[in-house]
């Protein structure tokens, strides 16, 4: 078991003929991800890495039974690609594209909700169930199969955390990069619920950052619904207010969204928060040995 994806998940790549799409399709295939189709309007009939390319998502889904789509489409038109995936019968959409206009995401998330389709991202590195399936741009070799579920707003910080966990012998059930945008798909609460219900996940790592109040809400959710051990980290402990730290969502505004408030929210319900990335495996081992 794992959450969201496993070795049987049939994956479709939107934007497979582009530079990034084609490169990462190769990487995902090498990892063992079951990629069954690609979509690129006007390039139906071609193949990329021996994978058949279709003109529309609908055609690809009908021909291959793909249920998950990963999007490598330029940000100005990525919103439309998300809508097409949901309309075409995809059940989980992962949008890697960075810089999608917020109002496009407002429209897309509303449509997906109506269709009962799940979304991860945009502006995210994707997700991985180690040893089974990697759907994204994650460096597969640092992950190790195991029992820690991980969720994070940041890509490279996830890599750092995962390599520290792996070095400490703590493998992962599924790791999900939820992305750094203000309006995004699946977030902490939904993923906490999935990890809580996943028999293979023993403990959870939550990597947050400044901006918004999602971490505070996650803490509330953990208090009420999560019995498994959780360890957290918050990036941006020293970020100045009013400055957007790269991620569109990472800004401390109107006196809220600071790391201090988020750390306090977790610690008040007994969730330890690592001050340094290197403390994550240590805190996790302490919790697991209890």
């Amino acid at each position: 078991m794992s959450i969201l994806i496993n070795k049987d998940t049939k994956v479709l790549v939107q934007g497979i003929t582009g530079r990034d799409g084609s490169f990462h399709t190769g990487k995902m295939k090498d990892y063992g991800t079951n990629i069954v189709a690609g979509v690129s309007p006007g390039k139906g009939g071609q193949t990329v890495h021996d994978i058949p390319v279709f003109n529309t998502v609908e055609d690809a889904v009908k021909a291959t039974g793909a249920t998950v789509s990963i999007i490598f489409i330029p940000a100005p038109i990525a919103g439309d690609a998300i809508l097409e995936a949901a309309d075409g019968g995809i059940k989980l959409v992962i949008c890697i594209s960075e810089g999608v206009p917020t109002l496009d995401m407002v429209k897309a998330t509303a449509y997906l909700k109506k269709k009962g389709v799940q979304l991860i991202g945009a502006n995210c590195p994707g997700l991985i169930t180690p040893g089974e399936s990697m759907i994204g741009i994650l460096p597969g070799n640092i992950f190790k199969k195991g029992n820690i579920g991980l969720m994070s707003r940041s890509g490279t910080l996830t890599y750092l955390m995962v390599s520290l966990l792996t070095q400490a012998g703590l493998g992962q059930s599924t790791c999900v990069g939820i992305g750094g945008d203000p309006v995004a798909g699946l977030y902490y609460e939904e993923l906490l619920e999935m990890f809580q219900n996943d028999p293979e996940t023993e403990a959870i790592v939550l990597i947050g950052e400044i901006g918004g109040d999602a971490e505070e809400r996650a803490a509330q959710y953990i208090k009420n619904h999560v019995t498994k051990p959780v360890v957290a980290f918050i990036a941006g402990q020293t970020a100045p207010p009013g400055k957007r730290m790269g991620h569109a969502g990472a800004i401390i505004s109107s006196g809220s969204g600071s790391a201090e408030e988020k750390i306090a929210a977790f610690e008040s319900i007994g969730v330890p928060v690592a001050r340094l990335p290197i403390d994550i495996p240590k805190l996790m081992k302490e919790l697991l040995s209890k």
């Binding site: 707003r153 941006g236 730290m245 790391a259």
Partner: peptide
């Protein structure tokens, strides 16, 4: 990466240093 860049600033401050900037060279 933005998250790693923020965490790097945090670690510098944690050990008593002062970061001169946030700089994410992207992907």
């Amino acid at each position: 990466g933005a998250g790693l860049a923020m965490a790097s600033m945090d670690v510098i401050k944690h050990f008593g240093g002062q970061p001169a900037n946030f700089l994410d060279i992207g992907g």
